[in-house]
Design a protein around this nucleic acid. Sequence first.
DNA 1: TTCGAGAGTTAGGTTTTCTAATGTCTAGGA
DNA 2: TCCTAGACATTAGAAAACCTAACTCTCGAA
Lengths: 290, 290
Amino acid sequence: MSRKISKQGLPPLDWLKVFEAAGRHGSFTAAAEEFGATQAAVSQRIRNLESWLGRQLFIRSARGVSLTVDGESYLPLVHDSLRALEQGTENLFGHSVRELRIAAQPSHLEMLLLPRLTVFSESYPDMRIVTETVPKRQDFEAADRALHIRYGRGVWDGREGVLLANEVLQPMTAPEHAKAWRSLPAIELRGERPGWSEWARVTGEGEPEMGPVSVDSMGHALRAARRGIGVVLGSRALASSLLQTGQLECAAAPELATIDGYWMTWPASLGKSKRQAEVLASLTAALQNL
Amino acid sequence: MSRKISKQGLPPLDWLKVFEAAGRHGSFTAAAEEFGATQAAVSQRIRNLESWLGRQLFIRSARGVSLTVDGESYLPLVHDSLRALEQGTENLFGHSVRELRIAAQPSHLEMLLLPRLTVFSESYPDMRIVTETVPKRQDFEAADRALHIRYGRGVWDGREGVLLANEVLQPMTAPEHAKAWRSLPAIELRGERPGWSEWARVTGEGEPEMGPVSVDSMGHALRAARRGIGVVLGSRALASSLLQTGQLECAAAPELATIDGYWMTWPASLGKSKRQAEVLASLTAALQNL
DNA sequence: TTCGAGAGTTAGGTTTTCTAATGTCTAGGA
DNA sequence: TCCTAGACATTAGAAAACCTAACTCTCGAA
């Protein structure tokens, strides 16, 4: 039985895409490359189309293919129609199609997302990334159509998501102080993460002496440590680019693993189409590469 | 992974067909009917499209659907593009697509094909049937792109085909003479079919007395018998419509089955697409209904 | 309150499509 | 002439996409 949905008087339209590309290139192989598929796939679809139309569209030779008279007549029509559709679709929906809105706390955007975005952008060069900073937790709800990157223990409400990395805390300092980190004052970090006393309790280490600095954001804490202000119980995930570039260094001290982590979530409606699923997968891969 | 062949910037075009129909009807159910598919299929394809575009195209309510602003904007573009493609395709290839050329001997066309064509035409109302009479055997070769209906023992050269009916011969007369057929003169039929003597030999019956009439075509022979000129060793297949309408009647006499038969054949290139395969199947079904 | 029409959802079977491997053909060079 | 490289065809089998059947949900009318 044939594919069920096929308008009377029109061949399956996806065959026409292949015809258009093959006609344009004068080569099945080149058309296949344009689609990232094999030459066999193109060959079969062209054959299907010719068979449906009842006419040859290409003349095959050992050196390549050329259009028959019928093919020559058909190509402009197909080309123009597809281009009109493409243009119109782009005008109406281009933004939604090629734009990815990402909401996160400013420091997460800066320390998790931005350093790894180039990897993603290489795969999807014409995809715009639009960030939306989320000062407070509850502001995530207002951005419910965007991707979220946030710290926590699991997936939220009606959204799907993946764990990018678990939170692992370890004392970190500027490189020049890494050896003698015990002599540095500890920087206090207020918030939902375990602090120095929890670290000391779990690892059995002695609690370092607290310094005068207390911040409420891991981003600030890490930057403070980089300047030599003290030792911070830093997040491996958030610090990873600072660590990789040598601006920060882990002290030779035990780490504290937590059950919390950094999650990327999206509305369940996203990711239903394969294209979006691929985009999400690519972004996930980039971000998990800590 | 998504379907491999999908032009950048364009969703799978077959989704657009469904969108166009659903938008035109304002109803998924109606669109489904137009395609001969289920409402679920339409629903899923629309959802895919919306997901690909990243926008809602329809507003769903319990009573039906209506287009969103985005949908309203998109519909004319899609409608016009598809229509242009449809029109252009029809202009260029309409004949090949909706025309079936059938070559056969005149009497086969008349007695096998025409009586059963209505059955086929009901399924494919806008398909033109173009017959080509073939006076001599070798003329089939000239019509090698057409369907052939011919008498013989199997499939020919590079063609595919099906057996429509085996040849079965039986004495036939006009209805008023059926009882007393032995008293009628036999009509001689020259050609490749077994004759009266073969019939007598195989069935063990006595050979009827030969009359003065000798013809070289089963069509002529049957018509002669219908006029009461004599008894003919008639082909069940070719006579079937005459028998059904009571213009001819089988005598109460044994039949002679042969290994020959009526075949429909087509170039192997036909029937490769599902559409053509369906057309062929439908025609075969009509013609086998003897 | 019940009913019916229309749409959503899901699981699972079918059909279509794609790929990998292999075959065929031709042109051009050794 | 023989060989090779490049382009397309063909095939079976795997993978993806698709469709249907069966069910649910919701709304508005009787």
